[in-house]
Design a protein around this nucleic acid. Sequence first.
DNA 1: TTGAAAGCGATACCAT
DNA 2: ATGGTATCGCTTTCAA
Lengths: 332, 332
Amino acid sequence: MPSGTESRRVTIHDVARAAGVSRQTVSRALNDKGEIDDSTKQRVLDAALTLGYRPSRFARGLVRQDTISVGLVIPDLLNPFFTEVAAAALEAARARGWHVLVYDTADSAQEELGTLQVIASQVDAVVGYFSLPEAEIEQLTRGLPVVLIDRGEHAERFSSIRIDGRDGVRAAIAHLVESGHRRIGMLDHAARTEPSVRHAWFAEGLAAHGLAEGPVYRADQNVEGGESAVEGLLTAHPEVTAVFAFNDIIAIGALRGARRMGRQVPRDLAVIGFDGVRLGTLVEPPLSSVALDTRRLGALAVDQAARLLTGGTPLGPDDLVARAELRLRGSA
Amino acid sequence: MPSGTESRRVTIHDVARAAGVSRQTVSRALNDKGEIDDSTKQRVLDAALTLGYRPSRFARGLVRQDTISVGLVIPDLLNPFFTEVAAAALEAARARGWHVLVYDTADSAQEELGTLQVIASQVDAVVGYFSLPEAEIEQLTRGLPVVLIDRGEHAERFSSIRIDGRDGVRAAIAHLVESGHRRIGMLDHAARTEPSVRHAWFAEGLAAHGLAEGPVYRADQNVEGGESAVEGLLTAHPEVTAVFAFNDIIAIGALRGARRMGRQVPRDLAVIGFDGVRLGTLVEPPLSSVALDTRRLGALAVDQAARLLTGGTPLGPDDLVARAELRLRGSA
DNA sequence: TTGAAAGCGATACCAT
DNA sequence: ATGGTATCGCTTTCAA
């Protein structure tokens, strides 16, 4: 421990002493309660300023137990889908007077772990995306209400907002088939080891039309990932005329990759994404997508957290669903 | 007060009683300390689970004062510029082991006020965008370290990260002039009553080339705002061949508006934005912009907060600057 | 108007 | 391995 400038915390006691009053008087002055002489109040305020006093939020929180904080955990704030979910959660939390601590886990299980370890002592509930096994999450959250988002088909131990894109993806495939496409590829999520649930829907959709499954390439969850994945796919399988992407950010990368390969969208290559982010309306051509209501998604998650927290009746699995629907724009 | 289901908080004491042990033993079991019999531990854990016990983060924080939280206040998380700044701040905070509470003030002074009122008792420092007068901020933060971002030329009472786009905007104008443009308009920020600092730079740039100032239209800070503003501008001033926008999101709206009016960018209308958001590379044509290093911006703000907080030597105004530089892509 | 004392809910240190 | 006691910094209640 370094010697010398050891700076102990300035407490209400120090201020009281400096101002020559009791701690309660300091508290009164600081919290603008009445019942205090103006000159005394000023003296206290001055002392507080001089000493650089700042009340401890813990001590205060301990006494007036009136604030609720929720931890929002997402893999990548810069992915516009997560941005939208975060914005929605923020809005829903604000409406309840809650505080939101945001953690960006950078798509890494390691960071998820680190986050969970520190989060438990900071929030009253956790909402978000986790790739960690439920058992592990449970162990680290120890009784904290947890609401998972998009946790595949079965979340056993925790509430989970399920994303149901089955019909939406089926509609997307149907649309492609109607438009004459027969060789349809997919750009799946690269992070997980197994194929994604969205891939399963994709396969189902193809099967429903008696189509053989097209090539599936893995893409990192960003524009560059989609770009290089589609290039790989088209190079190896030039006969492909349409691709379905795990999400919009990958699909947007595919738009770019297609252009670089001299394929015009949608004429030479149809592209359909998943998520329906606002950003999709800004690219050229506007992105067709199996769209989610992100606003509702965030609100739903926070709402469930609230129910879990206050002992209200939690929503069951059937209510915790966000359905996705095909939204056709220009790219398919 | 509603009668009946009054649910008092479950404390460590309750668990102790239920398990027939002392509070300290409960603490040991919960925190995985050693020195406890396995069966005892299990008994405690069971009791805790049954009672639905969750430790108070305040009580815990009070004892082990080891966590730092910073409040991040931004006007609109969905504006990609703020998304990038937020992501950068999150990253910088995580590197320090800090927690970040995010508040979206929805571009409203009212919400800023509300946020400031509740934030002071929740965080150790505040970083962000405020339109409120400094005196008001000061009153509500009472000694909390505050780092403002983009607070115009002079922030008197608080540290402020100044955004210096003078040279960048001048370069932008120079580029437009070299490309033959003489009638250059601007889409300014609508929220403030006075013209923005960016507008002043714009005017300076024109003056440097002996050009008369073109029309200035106000735009809401979103795509639709830029879209309708540019339509208004071009309708009233069809002779305009180039526009500079307050920021990229407005500029992207202008791109769309121009297209709707049958103007091809950059041939019939050159567009230059401000901020240099990643999103600018995804639109058609890619947006030219006076670009900021958002990553550095966020890191700088958090760094200064850290210095203020720990009594390190705070950075002076000359170091708290983010310079913007012209980044030419396709739209001009 | 001011002060003394009693918590708030946990952890740490020191006994046992 | 377990329990008693002090303590963290503040607000609230009650007396003076």
